[in-house]
């Protein structure tokens, strides 16, 4: 009886070395432990030169396995294509990443402040708070300190509820809105890379 090999291809992986084996891109399940080990060791490709990403199709992987085990029956339960990213690490990289992160934090901090002020002045918020003061308390009172204070606190509460955390500690295990957006964006990027690679025929596929 033919041996069954189950594969579960990942969506995208970040490779640590130039040599990519099946173990890097997929989980392998097989009744025969020797065969499982042998399958995981099969080399798919080698990153050469400046190439930093490569789309590998499941058909290419099946072909490579068939060379080793011609009788094996292969079932893929994961993605039909996998994107392999390769990036060399160097020590200057950490520094660059930190600088970039500080820049993004500055854009977030000052940008959010800038835009909330532009929103406030756009809708004439101070005038509105004055009006509310008149309506609720009466014109004899001056200033709108209490309304302003309450509005500022309310703004803070609203943001914290929306982002689900105030500091680096989350209130519940739910992912935050930015996290969800980032995963969505990642999936869209992966899909674009796969489609592009298919159009340019820059994909490792069965011949």
């Amino acid at each position: 009886m033919a041996d069954l090999i189950y594969l579960k291809l990942s969506e995208s992986v970040l490779a640590e070395s130039r040599k990519i084996t099946i173990k890097d891109v997929s989980k392998v399940v097989c009744d025969n432990p020797e065969m499982k080990y042998g399958t995981e060791k099969i080399e798919l490709m080698n990153f050469s030169g400046t190439k930093q990403q490569q789309v590998i199709s499941i058909l290419d992987i099946i072909e490579e396995i068939k060379k080793e085990y011609p009788k094996a029956e292969i079932t893929n339960l994961g993605q039909p294509e996998v994107i392999v990213y390769y990036k060399e690490f160097d020590t200057a990289d950490r520094m660059k990443q930190t600088v970039k992160l500080i820049f993004i934090c500055l854009v977030a901090f000052l940008g959010a402040g800038f835009s909330i002020i532009s929103y406030n002045s756009d809708v004439n918020l101070v005038g509105q708070l004055d009006l509310m003061q008149d309506l609720f308390v009466g014109e004899s009172e001056t200033g709108s300190t209490i309304a302003g204070l309450a509005y500022s606190i309310g703004l803070f509460i609203g943001i914290v509820i929306f982002f689900n955390h105030g500091t680096n500690k989350k209130f519940s295990d739910d992912p935050t809105p930015l996290q969800v957006q980032m995963r969505q964006y990642e999936q869209e990027v992966n899909q674009t890379i796969i489609t592009d690679a298919e159009r340019k025929k820059d994909i490792r596929d069965a011949d």
Binding site: L101, I104, C105, L106, A108, F109, L110, G111, A112, G113, F114, S115, I116, I117, N120, S121, L125, V126, L129, G148, Y151, S152, L155, F156, I159, V160, F163, H165, G166, T167, N168, K170, T176, L178, Q179, M182
Partner: peptide, 20 residues
């Protein structure tokens, strides 16, 4: 992402207080 979200939060809160 959480650090960036915190920056967004406090940027908006502080700037809002400054404006009001």
């Amino acid at each position: 992402y959480m650090l960036v979200e915190s920056c967004l939060t406090y940027g908006a809160v502080i700037a809002n207080a400054i404006y009001i």
